[in-house]
Design a protein around this nucleic acid. Structure first.
Lengths: 339, 339
DNA sequence: TTCCATTACGTTACCACTTACGTAAACGAT
DNA sequence: ATCGTTTACGTAAGTGGTAACGTAATGGAA
């Protein structure tokens, strides 16, 4: 092609073409998943999904676009029911954009598609070797002959066919323990120094002190974590339970919780407690169904100021363990998490 | 930035943003050069400049855009005098787009700017680690802090300040000998098997047979070539004289010709001839001014079927050699070339 | 000769995004 | 308390592109 002979001079045109092809490939994947979503909406929707409600200008700055672009898209998404908008009471200029419940539910399940796109794109980018021009040419080639789209479809199939597995701690997964919990903390609270410390050195703060960390893994991707912190001999705290945005409602939370309780049993623990927040109702319902019972909050000597829920595990109070594994709930636990 | 945390998922948005920034950076360089041109026009204008007149659909296919895009741009460029349009007599559907004389003249001088853009872009790409995604991040970084624009400006200054030098043959420049002559041949005639053979192995076909190849070099970039082929003892043919598109009118052709004649003298040659075409009037005028005189074409035993001009060097017929070096002509020799 | 598929290319409508600008609220210095 | 500046965000207009369609010429095949 003529443009390729122009070396770096035509990079602008080629980047733009690649950009549009990527949007098209992503849209194809969304259509295949039966989700009525446009790839151009991704930055805004994903931002709101991961970070929670935000203003127009904040989103614009975060995703590198102008605020009119976000404003116009938001207007459209509001009309089609993806977003709700309420003006701030404190500052009448500001309007908080928030995902509708339905939008949240749709996005909660998009993880596998995103995973497929990410993998296929990464593979295509890595196949390009050498100079930028060569790498770009390889990428363009994969797009032109449909390889990228084919790989996205194949990866999607793989991921959808895979089962969620629970694995014990591996130090190479520490980064995911950090990533998933940090994302969750930023969404719902704030990351404090204590959090950063534990998340950055989980070997030291959890494993070496007699605790355990479990990972939910889907086709090789870490999508959820859960920790069992040893408070005292026989006393464990269930903590750092989080499922990655986009992989909710697949039963990962339930499997993590069951596995954590099993691990607690294997260690012949006497007391298993957790602290959480009333805001996280879906998570609380999960705990209740697994056999946790409420105690008056706060727990004496609690590490967390904002914890207004305190629960302990009472095996007889919940339904039997077996049943939990047989019929994993698939209804939207939008934020399975213990604090 | 939020988008960067999304890995390959946001590649589409990022490519698009970088693309737009590249256009902006290029536009800044054009503005600095005082050329009233938009970077978005580059693929179309450059195609016409390098390849010659073409139809809408042909251009569209070559530059990877849709034909309406080219059609609309062509309409705009026609209005502002960059293009002329004449419908084909043989096929009334087709219309040949052609650069106006003024456009040709402008583009002939843009080589230094393009060179600067190419160098700065390549440098930015090399700062990335090698994969496409790293290169993208490097570009984003250099664009954000203004480094790309600064380097384009700096390179432009360097190139503009540089003098055109004539250098003897180096085998690592063989690729440029091929590139520049192939571009030229494709523009004006067609590349035949004989051409391809000589251009791909100049050592063997020119140097080893007692000939010479000269290169015009501007700040390290090879922008022109010229060959002295040994026909027989004391008999040389001036051939393969070409200056790269975009570097015309800088005097490279004149310098190459003078250097070739000097080399001919150094070898104590008796006869120096060339074959060319009547279509290439600016080149013919250059040869005449350097001391070449017309003989009846075709030359007995000519290699070239389409050569309808045959000239030999008559030192006394032209103005003295010294003067040529003192006052290089800078008027538009749009296609300095011997065939 | 007729007819239909193909080719060339223009037109239209639309889309995502931009720049430029306007409005209103909030803020801060005097 | 006032007034200029900043912030938030909407609107309008323009840009560069696409998809879809229309039209006219061309070129076989029936």
């Amino acid at each position: 092609m003529f443009l390729h002979s122009q070396g770096e001079l035509a990079l602008g045109s080629r980047f733009k073409a690649v950009s549009e092809s990527l949007y098209a490939a992503a849209n194809e994947a969304y259509r295949a998943s039966g989700v009525d979503i446009d790839a151009h909406w991704f930055p805004v929707l994903r931002y709101l999904h991961v970070k929670g409600p935000a203003t127009v200008t904040k989103i614009a700055a975060a995703i590198g676009q102008t605020h009119p672009a976000v404003s116009q898209l938001a207007a459209k998404l509001r009309k089609s029911g993806w977003l709700t908008h309420r003006t701030d009471k404190a500052d009448a200029r500001r309007g908080m954009l928030e995902l509708s419940a339905e939008a949240e539910r749709k996005l909660d399940r998009l993880g596998p598609v995103w995973c497929a796109i990410r993998r296929a794109a990464r593979a295509a980018a890595l196949r390009g070797q050498g100079t930028l021009i060569d790498a770009l040419a390889s990428f363009e080639n994969d797009i032109a002959n449909g390889r990228l789209a084919a790989e996205i479809a194949a990866e999607r199939k793989r991921v959808l066919a895979a089962e969620i597995e629970i694995h014990a701690y591996r130090s190479e997964w520490a980064v995911h323990f950090d990533r998933i919990n940090t994302e969750w903390l930023e969404r719902w609270f704030v990351v404090e120094a204590v959090d950063r410390e534990m998340l950055s050195r989980p070997d030291e703060h959890v494993i070496d002190r007699g605790g355990a960390i479990l990972f939910a893994v889907l086709d090789g991707e870490v999508i959820g974590t859960c920790a069992l912190l040893k408070e005292a001999p026989g006393v464990y705290e269930l903590s750092k339970m989080a499922v990655e945005t986009g992989f909710r409602g697949l039963g990962a939370g339930r499997k993590l919780l069951d596995a954590a309780i099993a691990e607690f049993g294997r260690r012949r623990g006497k007391t298993l407690f957790l602290e959480s927040s009333k805001r996280l109702t879906p998570a609380l319902r999960l705990y209740e169904s697994a056999g946790f019972a409420h105690l008056p909050a706060p727990r004496p000597g609690s590490h967390y100021q904002r914890a207004d829920v305190y629960m302990t595990y009472r095996p007889t109070a919940g339904r039997p363990h077996k049943k939990a594994q047989q019929t994993p709930r698939r209804t939207g636990e939008s934020s399975l998490r213990v604090r």
